Computed example of a mutant assay.
Amino acid sequence: MNIGIVAGGPLLALADLSIYKDKVDLWIGADLGANYLLNYNIDIDIAIGDFDSVSDQIKNRIKHNSNIYKEYPSEKNETDLELAIVTALTYNPTSIMLFGVTAGRLDHELANIQLLYRLLEQNIEAVIMDYKNEVSLYKPGRYNISARKEELISFLAFSSEVQGLSLEGFYYPLHNEKINWGGSTRCISNFLIEQEGTFLFESGILIVIKSTEEDKLS
């Protein structure tokens, strides 16, 4: 099962949800994210959160247009997104796409990237998507990667270090290198010179980010 979760990040940074309608089996709206789903004419399978980011009118709209509606108090231990992820896990998904989780509060954005690790540990394919970025975490292994012509691809260490990183099919190739969490920019803004590239590494946890130069927030 492929699950899409939409949180209430800034609307201008939201990816075009209509592109993913046929790729998602179950949609979860977290707080204001449920209203984003309605605005894209996407049925809400589950709406969840404290809904402190919406007016009473919008909350009623969400409530009456959701198959399942779960409202929580605003004082709680989890963010609305974490509640949505916990709910998604009960459906044993193979993949989860996260929308509306970037470009807002920095503390939330960093915490949301950390939530990817929780999904990685359960062997669930997970990606954070906005209008110009895709963010994923990887365990050691060999992976094929493709990208649109205008996309840049960056590699960062999520763990203290990543050992044995090699890049093939990229403009800037790499062979058996170590990158550290401590702040190297060596693997930023690479791009493919073939239709498909390969990255592989031996140990650590790797962040892979696809980005475009588009800037509709300015």
Rank of each mutant, 00 (worst) to 15 (best):
F170G: 00
G182Q: 09
G164A: 08
Q163K: 10
N176I: 01
H175N: 14
C187S: 05
N190V: 04
I193F: 11
Y172H: 14
F170W: 00
N180A: 07
Q195D: 15
E168P: 07
G169C: 03
L165I: 15
Y172V: 08
L165W: 13
F191N: 11
F170M: 00
H175K: 11
S189H: 03
I179D: 03
Q163L: 15
G164W: 05
Y172T: 08
N190E: 04
Q163C: 07
L167F: 01
W181I: 12
P173D: 01
F170V: 01
G169Y: 03
R186H: 02
P173N: 02
Q195F: 03
T185N: 14
Y171H: 14
F170D: 00
W181K: 09
I179P: 05
K178E: 13
E168Y: 12
F170L: 00
G164S: 06
L167V: 03
N190S: 03
S166P: 12
N176W: 00
P173F: 02
Q163H: 06
H175S: 10
S184Q: 09
C187P: 01
Y171F: 08
I193K: 15
H175I: 10
L174N: 01
S166D: 06
G164Y: 06
F170Q: 01
I193L: 10
K178W: 07
F191K: 10
L192S: 02
I179R: 06
L165S: 06
G164D: 04
E168D: 15
E194T: 12
E168C: 12
C187Q: 04
N180M: 13
W181M: 07
Y171D: 07
Q195T: 10
I179S: 04
T185Y: 13
I179K: 05
L167T: 05
K178Q: 12
P173I: 06
F170R: 00
I179G: 06
S184V: 05
E194Q: 13
S166Y: 08
L192R: 01
G164L: 08
N190R: 02
N180C: 14
S166N: 07
I188A: 05
T185K: 12
T185H: 12
I188E: 04
Q163G: 04
S184M: 09
Y171W: 07
E168T: 11
L165R: 06
E177V: 04
L167I: 05
N180H: 11
S184K: 09
G169E: 04
E177L: 10
T185E: 13
S189I: 02
Y172L: 09
Q195G: 15
N176H: 07
I193W: 13
F191Y: 15
L174R: 05
F191T: 06
E194I: 03
G183K: 13
I179L: 11
E194D: 12
L174C: 05
Q195L: 06
E177F: 08
G164H: 10
G169D: 03
E194L: 07
N180Y: 15
H175V: 13
N176V: 00
S189T: 04
L174A: 10
R186I: 06
E168F: 12
R186F: 05
S166H: 08
L192T: 01
L192D: 01
Q195R: 13
H175C: 13
E168M: 14
F170P: 01
K178H: 08
L192I: 01
E194V: 04
S166Q: 09
Q163R: 14
G182C: 09
E177N: 08
I179H: 05
F191R: 11
G182L: 11
S184E: 15
Q195A: 11
W181P: 00
